[in-house]
C-alpha cells in the first residue's frame, strides 16, 4: 500500500491508485478537521447563535422571509437572502433607509410610535436611562396560551445575536431576542412579561427593526398569514368578532398544529 511496505512497486497503476485514495482521504479529513476547528472557534467567539439563525433562516417558508421592501409593490423583490440583516444588505442600501413614524392599531393589536418591532415578534423600547425594554408583541402574546410559562435568561447573562429572549417552557418554540445585550432584570408591563437589557450596540444601528407605519403594515401582513394558517383563508371577514383579535387564540382554534404555527410565526425553524 505504501512505499517500503512489502509488495509495493513503483508501477503506474499502483501509483495512480494510491495517489487517488490518499487525495480523497486527505480532502475528507481536511474538511472534517477544519469544520470542527472552525466550529470550536465560533462557539468560543459567541457566534453560535448568529450562525444558527442564518442556517435556520433558509428552512423557513418563503412567505415568512419576505423582504421588507417587497410590500412596497416592488415585484422584483421577494424573499430576503440575508437573514433580515438589513445593515449589511445591498438591496437595503440601494433603496435607502425606511423613514417611518406613526402609530396604529391592527384589529386591536397596538403599534406604538415609541417602540421598535423585531420580525420575530418582539418589541424594543428605549428607556430614559439608556437601557431598553424588550417584550412580546400583542400578536405573539395571543399565540401563546394564557397560562404559558417562559424560560428567560438570568440577570447578568449576556444575550448574543441569534440567542432567544424567551423560550416556551416545554421547549417547543424559541422567541429570538431583537438585539444583543446584557440582561438587567425582568418585570411585568401591562401584566405581560418584559426584560430590561443593557444594549450591546446603540439601538440606531439596528436598522432591521421596524417602526411606525412600516410596522403597522407588517403587523397586518402577519395577522393575515396567521389567519391563513389557522383558518385556511386570508379574508378579513373571517374575524367574526367584528374587529379585535381574541386574547388566547389557542382556545379559539384548539385544533391547529400550534407547535408548527408558533415556530413559523416566531421565525424559529
Amino acid at each position: 500500500m505504501l512505499p517500503n511496505v512489502y509488495e509495493f512497486s513503483w508501477e503506474p497503476h499502483r501509483i495512480v491508485f494510491v495517489a487517488f485514495f490518499l487525495t480523497v482521504a486527505g480532502v475528507l479529513v481536511a474538511h472534517v478537521a477544519t469544520s470542527l476547528w472552525r466550529s470550536w472557534r465560533d462557539v468560543r467567539a459567541g457566534r453560535a447563535g448568529s450562525l444558527r439563525w442564518h442556517e435556520d433562516f433558509e428552512e423557513l417558508p418563503e412567505e415568512r422571509r419576505l423582504c421588507r421592501h417587497a410590500s412596497h409593490g416592488d415585484a422584483a423583490v421577494r424573499a430576503c437572502e440575508n437573514g433580515f440583516d438589513c445593515a449589511h444588505c445591498e438591496r437595503h442600501r440601494s433603496r435607502g433607509p425606511v423613514a417611518s413614524t406613526g402609530a396604529g392599531s391592527v384589529h386591536g393589536l397596538e403599534i406604538r410610535a415609541d417602540t421598535f418591532y423585531h420580525r420575530g415578534h418582539t418589541w424594543v423600547r428605549p428607556e430614559p436611562d439608556g437601557r431598553v425594554k424588550v417584550g412580546l408583541t400583542p400578536l405573539a402574546v395571543r399565540m401563546l396560551p394564557a397560562d404559558a410559562r417562559l424560560r428567560i435568561p438570568e440577570p447578568g447573562e449576556e444575550i448574543r445575536s441569534g440567542d432567544p429572549a424567551f423560550v416556551l417552557a416545554d421547549g417547543s418554540v424559541r422567541v429570538l431576542a431583537p438585539i444583543e445585550g446584557r440582561v438587567v432584570r425582568c418585570g411585568f408591563e401591562d401584566g405581560l412579561l418584559t426584560l430590561t437589557l443593557d444594549p450591546g450596540r446603540p439601538l440606531a444601528e439596528h436598522v432591521e427593526l421596524l417602526s411606525g407605519h412600516e410596522a403597522v403594515g407588517w403587523m397586518e401582513r402577519e395577522l393575515r398569514q396567521l389567519q391563513a394558517r389557522l383558518l385556511g383563508t386570508e379574508a378579513a371577514s373571517a374575524w367574526a368578532d367584528g374587529g379585535a383579535v381574541a386574547d388566547d387564540l389557542t382556545r379559539v382554534v384548539p385544533g391547529a398544529d400550534w407547535g408548527s404555527v408558533r415556530r413559523d410565526m416566531f421565525l424559529d425553524a
Binding site: 412580546l136 402574546v141 401563546l144 394564557a146 397560562d147 404559558a148 410559562r149 417562559l150 424560560r151 428567560i152 435568561p153 438570568e154 423560550v167 417552557a169 425582568c186 411585568f188 401584566g191 405581560l192 412579561l193
Partner: peptide, 11 residues
C-alpha cells in the same frame, strides 16, 4: 435560565 409566567395574573 429562569422560568416565569407570561402574564402577571397567571394562576
Amino acid at each position: 435560565m429562569l422560568e416565569v409566567a407570561l402574564r402577571a395574573d397567571a394562576p
